[in-house]
Amino acid sequence: MRINTYYLTLTIMILFPHFNVQANNIETGKKLYEEACVACHSIADNSNITLTERLNEKAPSLFYAGNKFNALWLESWLSSPKRIRPGGHFFLDKVKVTEDGDIIDESKLTAHLSVKPEQAKYLTEYLMAQTPKSDLIALEKVTLGKVNRTLGGKDFNKFKGCGSCHQDEDGYGGVSGPELYTSIERLQPEFIASYIRTPEKWDPKTLMPNRHLNDVSIKKLLNYLNVISE
């Protein structure tokens, strides 16, 4: 029986070498993740997270990383990371009260560590294998299109209020949420659509409101994100 299993494994390795290499890469990525990422990120199921735990998180959950990120972007970003959230993961402990209003104290923001390109490849393979919310992704059918930039901006800022927390251009917009002028590059469009539709299904203690938008409104926002990403 042992010999049979040995030969079966050997046959699989010969017939599907790619499968075996990928499995090894994911395993290597997992080890790297455990060494470098767990100090700040969690990959655990966040379904029962409390608000206190959510506010104490040092970095975003990676529980559903494979449903969220574009793999090419992730791999490239991990070896040369740039800030995505002007106020950090949770802005509150970075706030400085001034006479002109509250501002983000940039000295309190920490830089994301960078890894070697080879390590980024393994980490990406591991993270992209985390897909517990594929059922939510399957509900979205997205075809990115275009929208008039001015009208799209008005919709984004004035009618939907997204600009209160998110930047739609470098330096313009809210700072408590992640920048969105790079969102199409960073994220899977179906993830963006689903997160706008029901943010609480991704992150039960999300700081983003569910504005109960219909398909047309979500499509309009995605088209605007597409236009500003170009």
Partner: peptide, 27 residues
């Protein structure tokens, strides 16, 4: 207090005075 810090201070300010970190670009 915790809910206020989580959801409100980003716009209404740490001290609740309406000058939160997001207000710089608001209409």
């Amino acid at each position: 207090d915790q809910l206020y810090r989580a959801y409100c201070t980003q716009c209404h300010g740490i001290n609740g005075d309406g000058w939160g970190v997001n207000t710089a670009s608001m209409d």
